[in-house]
């Protein structure tokens, strides 16, 4: 997806980071924020707000889109003291989580704090998500049917 997006490398990287942040739990984010040294000032550009996004599917899986149903989404936009703007969108209704996503998005955009965001949030969450996916895949694979053919011999 990322390489096909036609976006520059930095934007691609930010998309990926936002994707990871959106799946971080509130506890992941809150712990990292609590431990964050010299916290910047954070101002709400758009305070956390919960609303609906209509999820779409495709006819037959790959055809024309149709509306499947809605999901709750919470979004937030913040500005740091130095003017960096961060944005957060998460599934569900957790305002604290959405705001923390926005804060870490902003911190990640600053070259000065990016490595710390990568180390404190992105890398561990990404590793946990990958491990969860791996174990889901292994659990599913264990239920895979290995067909074998019975040969009915006459002799």
């Amino acid at each position: 997806m990322t390489s096909l997006s036609g976006l520059d490398a930095d934007t691609d990287a930010r998309r990926a980071v936002l994707g990871v942040l959106a799946r971080a739990t509130r506890d992941d984010l809150a712990a990292a924020w609590t431990a964050w040294p010299d916290k910047p000032d954070v101002f709400d550009v758009r305070a956390p707000e919960t609303g609906l996004v209509m999820v779409r599917g495709r006819m037959g899986g790959g055809g024309r889109p149709f509306n499947l149903g809605e999901t709750t989404v919470t979004r937030c936009t913040v500005r740091l003291g130095d003017g960096t703007v961060g944005t957060g969108h998460v599934l569900g209704r957790d305002r604290v989580q959405a705001r923390l996503v926005a804060v870490f998005d902003a911190l990640w955009q600053r070259p000065r704090t990016r490595p710390a965001v990568e180390a404190a949030v992105i890398a561990p969450v990404r590793a946990r998500l990958a491990a969860e996916d791996d174990s889901a895949r292994s659990e599913t694979a264990a239920t895979r049917v290995d067909f074998f053919t019975m040969v009915r011999g006459d002799d």
């Binding site: 996004v53 209509m54 895949r137 599913t140 239920t143």
Partner: peptide, 20 residues
């Protein structure tokens, strides 16, 4: 709740499959 918009169509071919 207000409606923020709609999603891109979900890609079921790229699903993390639990059963198939």
């Amino acid at each position: 709740l207000p409606r923020f918009g709609f999603s891109r169509p979900v890609d079921t071919a790229a699903m993390l499959v639990r059963r198939r």
